[in-house]
């Protein structure tokens, strides 16, 4: 494990990235629907070396009561990292980063869920990052969509998420931890493929207008790959292998 950032080659002359991937290739992704006994819905995702569990409860009574809305159900999201999920042991108290990510994930899921049929209730989404490796918010959002569907929350579409970015002056799909640290840009995207709507979009780094366009296209392409795996996970749980 001698390689440090100074010697790291993000993209070699054959267009191969530091972890052996091509520019438009995502990391290994595995999604499983269900798995938790007590949650109303759950999902587990491995996205590269990210390992994340999501549990959903609800719609259910809202505590504290004053948070409830008489016109619609509300969505609440908590993104949380375990102390052992990162290199340096993380303080168990919620960080500003975790609070912001909870918010952007919630807002990315809002356009998908239909809670107007459940006034005065809450749907709680609990995201637990067991191991982090760059791109946790996209992996978490993708798993959260599967867990919500598993819980039977009505949804217009599932939100699939994947990041695109720029490293070694090239637009790449699914930015890993090294590329995030040493690269030039990182753009997480959440997307509802059937409705063709972007529900999460952030950018760290500098892109030309042309690169910006390419980056969004690349990210959406990644979301569509994730979407197929989300559908596969739910199909396997609910319909076994006997498709149709």
């Amino acid at each position: 494990m001698g390689g440090r950032d100074t010697t790291l080659v993000l993209l070699d002359e054959n267009g191969i990235r530091c972890d052996g991937r091509k520019v438009d290739e995502p990391r290994r992704i595995m999604i499983k629907a269900g798995g938790l006994k007590n949650a109303d819905g759950s999902a587990y995702i491995e996205f590269g070396d990210n390992k994340i569990i999501v549990g959903v409860f609800g719609p259910r009574d809202v505590h504290p009561k004053h948070m409830s809305n008489t016109d619609t159900g509300i969505l609440r999201v908590r993104y949380h990292m375990e102390p052992f999920s990162v290199t340096e042991r993380k303080n168990p108290a919620p960080s500003r980063r975790e609070i912001e990510i909870s918010k952007v994930i919630k807002e990315a899921l809002e356009p998908a869920v239909m809670l107007d049929k459940f006034p005065r209730t809450a749907v709680d989404v609990f995201i637990e990052v067991l191991q982090a490796d760059g791109g946790t918010r996209c992996a978490a959002l993708s798993a959260a969509s599967v867990a919500l569907a598993d819980a039977g929350i009505p949804m217009r579409d599932m939100v699939a998420a994947c990041a695109a970015g720029k490293a070694a002056d090239t637009i790449i799909l699914d930015v890993n931890n090294e590329e995030d640290q040493a690269g030039q840009a990182d753009m997480p995207i959440g997307y509802m493929p059937s409705l063709e709507k972007i529900t999460l979009l952030q950018l760290d780094g500098v892109l030309t207008p042309a690169e910006y366009k390419k980056c969004v296209e690349t990210g959406i392409h990644g979301c569509k790959i994730v979407y197929e795996l989300q559908k596969k996970a739910l199909t396997e749980k609910y319909f076994g292998n006997g498709e149709k």
Binding site: V54, G55, F57, H80, D124, F126
Partner: peptide, 15 residues
């Protein structure tokens, strides 16, 4: 040594 009940472990667990 620490222990935490994650809220996804049971509906009665609060953050």
């Amino acid at each position: 040594c620490t222990a935490e009940l994650l809220p996804l472990s049971h509906p009665s667990v609060e953050t």
